[in-house]
């Protein structure tokens, strides 16, 4: 187990080095001089030169890459261009808000998605199942920012039940979390339903029924546990979706998280901040997928990692 874990963590290193390289090459592709673009038209040649030097832009890509990575190893993401603050600090400030939003959305998505999927599979082709199937397809098709706006119009403007934006009490969390969870709920409901239907045809389900296990026990103890593995895989793949969705959700609800910071960094052309933020999200993505892989062993004792 620990050997497997170490190997997986070692594999993460080239992936993250690749991600950093990708970001740097992309920034390198910008036509013109990023330093001059950042400072605007009024900048003198002297200040542009200074900024170029402080950003290492006068160095070739390979040198910048090595310098960035060696600072990164020491846990230093550099200083943001606009405000001159340490990127570590800026990210530490916004990170809890995104984590709170993302985790809440994940819990909501698992609770609702799996429950709905199990109920759908319990009564396939019933009215409930048909409604769920159509709604979940629609849920996958809605642009997440639109879902958020519709929820704001209904629950904040018309019904006046919940605040339309900002972060504070738990009431501020409800609408953004539901918005962010919607595509994942739809995905999980579809996945759980189809794998449950497959599992329910297995011999061991018939055996369990023959031994007198009740409907509920068969459904939860025997079927659901086996149906969860594909659902968990989908959940891992959905993490990228969830992180991208967080950028949009935070924009719609003025949620002070890392997504809004990224959008702000793009418009301010603050590449150091952008690079740091993207990197942190990429690490999050890779770590979550590792946790997903580890959870297989818990769900299915036949799987063991060595």
């Amino acid at each position: 187990m620990s050997g497997y874990l170490i190997r997986r963590i070692l594999v993460m290193i080239p992936v993250l080095l690749g991600v950093i390289l990708l970001i740097m090459v992309t920034i390198d592709l910008i036509p013109g001089d990023p330093a001059a673009l950042m400072l605007g038209e009024g900048a003198t040649a002297d200040t542009v030169m200074k900024l170029r030097k402080s950003l290492d832009l006068d160095q070739p890509l390979a040198v910048r890459y090595v310098r960035y990575v060696s600072r990164l190893v020491q846990g230093d993401l550099g200083r943001s261009i606009r405000e001159g603050r340490r990127v570590n600090e800026e990210i530490a400030e916004v990170w809890p808000a995104t984590a709170q939003l993302g985790l809440t959305a994940l819990v909501v998505a698992i609770a609702v998605g799996v429950t709905v999927g199990v109920l759908s599979a319990r009564w396939p082709y019933s009215l409930f199942d048909n409604i769920v199937r159509v709604l979940s397809l629609f849920g996958l098709s809605m642009p997440i920012f639109w879902t958020g706006i519709v929820l704001i119009v209904v629950f904040s403007l018309v019904l006046n039940w919940l605040p339309a934006g900002g972060r504070g009490t738990w009431t501020h969390l409800v609408l953004p979390a539901v918005t962010l969870a919607t595509p994942t709920i739809a995905m999980l409901a579809r996945m759980t339903r189809s794998t449950m239907l497959e599992v329910l045809r297995e011999d061991y389900i018939r055996t369990a029924r023959a031994k007198g296990a009740g409907n509920r026990r068969v459904l939860i103890r025997h079927a659901l546990r086996n149906a969860l593995i594909p659902a968990v895989t989908v959940l891992g793949l959905q993490t990228g979706q969830l992180l991208g969705g967080a950028v949009l959700t935070e924009t719609v609800f003025a949620w002070p998280g890392i997504g809004r910071m990224l959008v702000r960094a793009i418009f301010a052309r603050d590449y150091v901040l952008l690079q740091g933020g993207v990197l942190v999200l990429a690490v999050t993505f890779v770590v979550i997928n590792l946790l997903v892989d580890l959870s297989y062993a818990y769900l299915d004792p036949r799987i063991s990692y060595r």
Partner: peptide, 24 residues
């Protein structure tokens, strides 16, 4: 495939954002 894995390891929207913010 390892190169493509790096691209796939990128949250989808962030990849597009990185490209567009670089190219305009």
């Amino acid at each position: 495939m390892r190169t493509l894995d790096v691209l796939l390891a990128f949250p989808y929207l962030l990849l597009a954002i990185a490209i567009v913010s670089a190219l305009g």
